[in-house]
Every structure is written in structure tokens, then in C-alpha cells.
Amino acid sequence: MIREFKENDMHSVMKLWLETNIAAHNFIHEDYWKSNYDNVKQMLPEATIFVYEENDSIQGFIGLSQNYIAGLFVETICQSKGIGKALLNHIKERHTELLLQVYKKNNRAVNFYLREGFAIIHEQIDKNTNEIEYIMKWCKYE
């Protein structure tokens, strides 16, 4: 079930954020994610967040700032089961255009977004990690 984020989801969402970032970005030292944990935790309430919950367990979430997807995270053992697609479709229903940034080396995520109708519109270097990232865009009417 997809629902809006509630304050008492914070611990589960942040645990999921940290674990999936470390697992998906083995090309970035895990200290980077750990050092950003508190900043993300502070910014989270300012975002629009939807969680995917099953059996009282949060298995994924998506965070938005207007039409920018700040992140889409699915618990590692729950990946490739349609949760990410369901969360993405949930926000596609509410927007006509979406943008996101994804690391070029995160092949699984890049391929997922391409399959879901996003296009790479720009390539740049993330100043915080010195890694190449893509800016991707989805439009409802293109």
C-alpha cells in the first residue's frame, strides 16, 4: 500500500535511505552517506514523501521537492518486485514532468528510469563525490 509519510516513519525511512545508498553506490565510500545522514534527516520533513508499506513494514519510499525526485529507495530484498515502479507511477499521476539525478555508474537505476520513460538530458560531475551523474527527465505528454 502506498501512503503519505508520517512522522513516526522517520526511523524506518532513514534506515532504508542509508542501507540502500551504501548498497547501490559501492563506488562511493559509505562514510559519505553516513556523514550526510543528519542533513537528510533534517530535510526530509520539507519534502513530499510517499512510502510503500506492507505488513506494517516500510519496503520503499519516494521523496519529492516539487517535480524533482530527490530519491527513490526500495529495500534490497524487495527490489525487482514492482515497488519502485508503483511508487513512481503514484507520482506520475500527480505530475506532468519529473526530473531526477542518478549516478552514471548506478546501472540498475539508470536502466530502471530509462524503462520507465525517462530520458537523459544532461551529464555532469557531482561536486560532492566527483562522480558523473545524469540528469533525467520524464514528461507525461512526450
Score class of each variant (00 low, 15 high):
Met14Val: 13
Glu30His: 10
Gly63Ser: 15
Lys34Ser: 04
His29Pro: 05
Lys6Ala: 00
Leu98Lys: 09
Val13Arg: 01
Cys78Val: 01
Asn111Thr: 10
Ile77His: 14
Ile132Thr: 15
Val110Trp: 03
Glu53Gly: 14
Ile125Asn: 09
Met43Ile: 02
Arg3Leu: 09
Asn130Gln: 15
Asn128Arg: 10
Trp33Gln: 04
Glu46Tyr: 07
Cys139Gly: 06
Ile58Arg: 09
Cys78Asp: 11
Gly84Tyr: 07
Asn67His: 07
Met43Phe: 01
Asn39Ala: 05
Glu142Asp: 10
Gln66Met: 11
Lys137Gly: 00
Leu99Glu: 15
Tyr134Lys: 10
Glu4Asp: 14
Thr48Lys: 06
Lys85Ala: 03
Asn128Trp: 02
Gln124Thr: 12
Tyr37Asn: 03
Gly71Ile: 05
Glu123Ala: 14
Lys104Gly: 07
Ala23Glu: 12
Lys85Ile: 12
Thr76Ala: 05
Thr129Ala: 03
Asp38Ile: 08
Leu98Gly: 05
Tyr113Gly: 07
Gln79Val: 10
Asn107Gly: 04
Lys92Pro: 06
Asn26Val: 12
Leu64Ala: 03
Arg94Thr: 13
Trp17Asp: 00
Glu46Asp: 11
Val102Gln: 05
Asp56Asn: 14
Tyr52Cys: 00
Ser57Trp: 02
Asp9His: 04
Phe50Met: 04
Glu53Leu: 13
Gly60Arg: 08
Phe112Gln: 11
